[in-house]
Design a protein around this nucleic acid. Structure first.
Length: 269
DNA sequence: ACGTGATCCTGGAAGC
DNA sequence: TGCTTCCAGGATCACG
């Protein structure tokens, strides 16, 4: 289940293989992703890959006249392999390169996306995103201002892409634990001081995960195809019933906004 | 405007 | 053993 760190690690992994290569063909075996894969994607054929950037959990492969926009959903995997390599189940899209390799997109659950964004048009799904968490645009002041009067839980608040992008369920849980904040607390009832802490723990937990190659549960593979592994130690996520590492209290789980939520009732208030 | 909940999809795990 | 049920997850949309 790729979160921001996994997407960033994928970007770093595929960039050396793609940059400067010309796209010779785009093979779409199944258009049925989150949105149908558009025919306009074929405009990228014959173009040279300039650079690959990341916005939230989207990868944008720039080919001069526009971007191929990829989202890994929750089970999407990217691999760079020989274009001749026989496709397996759920290998939905190949971006074939002039060096005989291809970027192959595999996504069993088809929650991901593969779209085309011309230079002069911003896709709606990219137009309303909040700031990147790892830039200076993401500040405690932003959280403090936007949280004013909000009654919804602080966990829901920091997972809202209008507030800040790229904070998925795993890292929301971990960041709230590190900041000592009860995930159920109303966003408007978290102090300014604690938002300063939370801003920092969000940055820290994401940076650490990127540095360690991304946290992996079961659906992420490195871009070279090596199997995923647990790279980061999670302190609350998935650990209900286990003792808190700090105070030994049993980690609890509750559902917030239809998402499983883990916290230490002693450390997080 | 705000907040909550259903929805999409598949495979792996858990339960019977 | 083999079936059924549940669950995971991001982002959007439909509702109250």
């Amino acid at each position: 289940m790729p979160e921001l760190p996994e997407v960033e690690v994928s970007r770093l992994g595929i960039t050396p293989w793609l940059q400067g290569q010309t796209i010779t063909n785009i093979i779409v075996r199944d258009v049925r992703l989150r949105w149908p894969v558009p025919d306009t994607l074929q405009q990228a054929c014959g173009r040279t890959i300039q650079h690959i950037r990341r916005r939230a959990k989207y990868l944008l492969i720039n080919v001069g006249i526009g971007d191929i926009v990829l989202h890994l959903g929750m089970s999407g995997k990217l691999r760079v392999i020989d274009a001749q390599h026989p496709p397996v189940k759920h290998d939905h899209v190949d971006i074939v390169l002039s060096n005989g390799k291809c970027l192959r997109y595999n996504d069993p659950r088809r929650f991901g996306a593969c779209l085309w964004q011309p230079n002069d048009v911003l896709l709606p799904l990219l137009s309303k995103l909040g700031p990147e968490p790892l830039t200076s645009d993401f500040t405690p002041q932003r959280l403090i201002t936007l949280a004013k009067g909000k009654k919804s839980p602080v966990k829901t608040f920091i997972m809202d892409n209008d507030v800040v992008v790229g904070v998925g369920n795993i890292y929301a849980n971990e960041a709230l634990f590190m900041a000592g904040i009860d995930p159920r607390r109303a966003a408007g009832r978290v102090s300014a001081k604690r938002y300063q802490m939370l801003t920092q723990t969000i940055k820290t937990v994401l940076e650490k995960a990127i540095a360690q190659g991304g946290t992996t549960l079961k659906d992420f593979a490195q871009s070279d195809g090596s199997p995923g592994y647990f790279a980061q130690h999670l302190r609350v996520y998935g650990r209900s019933g286990e003792p808190c590492e700090v105070c030994d209290t049993e980690i609890k789980s509750v559902v917030i906004g239809q998402r499983n939520t883990f916290f230490c009732p002693e450390c997080q208030r």
